[in-house]
Amino acid sequence: MGNRIEQELTEDLLRELQEEHYVMLATIDQDTKGPSVNAISWIYAADRNTIRFAVDRKSRIISNIHENPAAVMTVIADGSTYALSGKSKIVQEKIDNVPVKLSMMELHIQEVKDVMFYGARLTHEPQFEKTYDEDAAAKLDRQVMDALQSV
């Protein structure tokens, strides 16, 4: 469809983003004041206006958000590409009950824009696999997703 603009997640996007999903997060770099883009997957749509996500506590994302809360999350889902724009904040500096050092953040959505170019539909969405111990990855994923859902 292309360029459709909403003020919150659609029901389809809400469902899609209530499980681990590959997304790109763009923030404003605190030093260069230019764009900084990171791929993340630990996300959870708490409601139609809020996406929680987990990042390493040493991630540049955290210092960028401290300096400037503006952020855009790019989501590939439902045959299209969406830009979720809004303000981010740190919810928990340290996520408890997770064996790695992570912080929990939230994106408060102000605009959901379908940014797919005209006349096209994606036939395949990005897929990824964890490259470390499969059982350890599954356990860690459950712990992080439980934490994101429990706030």
Rank of each mutant, 00 (worst) to 15 (best):
K33R: 14
S80N: 13
K89H: 07
M104T: 01
D56K: 04
A46S: 10
D31F: 08
N38E: 03
K58A: 10
L25D: 03
K89P: 00
S36I: 00
N64R: 13
M105H: 05
R15F: 02
K94W: 06
A71T: 00
I65L: 03
Y22K: 11
S41T: 13
P99C: 13
I76C: 13
S85Q: 12
V100H: 13
R48G: 05
S36C: 06
I95G: 11
L102T: 04
A45F: 08
E106Y: 02
I61P: 03
H66F: 14
V75M: 12
S41K: 12
T74P: 09
P69Q: 08
K101L: 07
W42E: 08
A70D: 07
R15G: 01
A83K: 07
E67C: 14
T81V: 15
W42L: 07
I51F: 09
H21Q: 10
P35Q: 04
K33I: 00
K89L: 01
I90G: 06
W42H: 11
I95E: 06
S103I: 02
L84C: 13
K89W: 01
I65Q: 02
K87C: 01
V37R: 10
E16C: 13
T74I: 12
D47C: 06
D78R: 06
E19F: 09
V100A: 14
G86P: 02
K94H: 15
W42M: 10
P69D: 07
H66Y: 15
V23E: 01
S85K: 14
K89E: 05
N38G: 00
D78Q: 12
L14D: 07
S41V: 10
N68P: 05
I90S: 08
E67R: 15
A83H: 12
E67M: 14
S41C: 13
G86Y: 04
A26Y: 01
Y22I: 11
H108A: 03
Q30C: 10
Y44Q: 04
S41A: 14
P99T: 12
S85D: 05
T81P: 04
D29L: 02
D29E: 02
I95N: 11
L25T: 04
K101S: 13
N68D: 14
Q18L: 04
I28S: 07
A71I: 00
L102H: 11
I76A: 15
D29S: 04
S36V: 00
E20V: 05
D96P: 07
Y44D: 04
I90P: 06
T74N: 14
P69M: 08
H108V: 00
G34M: 11
I95R: 12
G86K: 03
S85H: 05
E106M: 03
E106V: 01
R15E: 08
K94P: 00
R57S: 14
I90V: 13
A70F: 04
L14T: 06
D56R: 06
D96R: 14
A46M: 07
R52Q: 01
V72Y: 06
A71V: 00
N49P: 00
Q18M: 09
R15N: 08
E16M: 10
L17Q: 02
V75Y: 05
L14P: 09
K87Q: 08
S88Q: 06
